[in-house]
Computed example of a mutant assay.
Amino acid sequence: MKNLRRNFERYCFANRNKGIPNLMLYVSLGNAVVYLISALAGNYLLYNLLCFNRTAILHGQIWRLVTYPLTLLNSNIFFMLISLLCYYSLGTAMERQWGTLKFNIFYFTGVVLMDVYGMLFNCQADVYYLNMSLFLGYATLYPQAQFLLFFIIPIKAWAFALFDLVVIFAGLFHTPFTAANLFPLVALGNYFLFFGKDVLNVVPLSWQNKLRRLFHKAPKQQPKIIHFHVTEQPKKAETPAYTHKCTVCGRTDVSNPELEFRYCSKCSGYYCYCSDHINNHTHIQ
């Protein structure tokens, strides 16, 4: 699996400019057009023609499989505009970091997963989960980015993402395990597939280190019985193992627990960098 992921990353990097550039621009404009037409017409006729509907798809309206991402609606035009600008910015930042091809595959993987699951189990595919996967992906790539709650309170992206993930998983355990109740987890499958263990980036590194030390406490050693004629040699201090080490400066999450460590997607391979060098290093090819 690790080799498969590495080969996929290399393929996406080698073809990073292929695909549909500025995909989120077209998606945002499409949502704006659908919203304006529906508002001017005073009905939801166009919305009902584009949204996901399993019965209608089985009767030949197959365009609904790809048009439901354009059905984001909000009763308030101001919040609708803010939402579109927000998701456009998130998608553009991810595309800039990953490249056009990888971002296209990420977005359309979410569409396909919801299409397949919705058709098999009669669940309602919704653009909400596509936008949620965008936000979670952005927060994983840029956990220290800030959002303004109620346009006033600054909150880090990782805090929002962690809250959303907790709500999603808590909902799974508070409801019966039916196909409909498992749909949110499947709908965010593109996020979990593309990020893998990097999902843990939404948890601050200091929290990860505390949890690691909590669950890996060494058992108490029994007192040694030393005979009077034996001289015990002093033991060398063991260097604690580290998880992340900066390729440039060599600092680790053990020697400098206050630092954040990230892996560069532009380097050919898995190279880790601290927060001082993730955006200031020569890419390894």
Rank of each mutant, 00 (worst) to 15 (best):
N48K: 13
D115P: 04
L58E: 13
Q97G: 00
D276Q: 13
L130A: 10
I226A: 02
K102L: 09
A237M: 09
F192G: 03
A179Y: 12
I155H: 06
Y47R: 00
Y271R: 08
Y142A: 08
I20Y: 14
I62M: 09
L205A: 03
V34M: 07
F215N: 04
E95I: 01
V33R: 05
H174D: 02
C249Q: 08
I62Q: 01
Q146A: 02
M114H: 03
L193W: 11
P21K: 07
S268R: 11
Y263F: 10
V202A: 02
N17K: 15
I105M: 14
Y117L: 04
Q208E: 05
L162C: 10
C123E: 11
N104F: 05
F183G: 00
V166L: 14
L130E: 05
Y273G: 07
D115V: 12
Y117K: 06
N131L: 14
S265M: 08
P219A: 09
Q146H: 10
L259E: 03
I105E: 02
D126S: 15
N280G: 05
A145M: 03
G60P: 04
L101Q: 05
A180E: 14
A41P: 03
N190E: 05
G110L: 03
Q61M: 11
L81D: 00
T140R: 00
L90D: 01
G269Q: 12
L185E: 03
P223F: 05
I77L: 10
L70D: 06
Q61L: 12
R5Q: 11
L205I: 13
L70T: 09
A218H: 12
S206F: 02
Y271D: 08
L182Y: 06
E260G: 02
T55Q: 14
K102M: 11
M114Y: 01
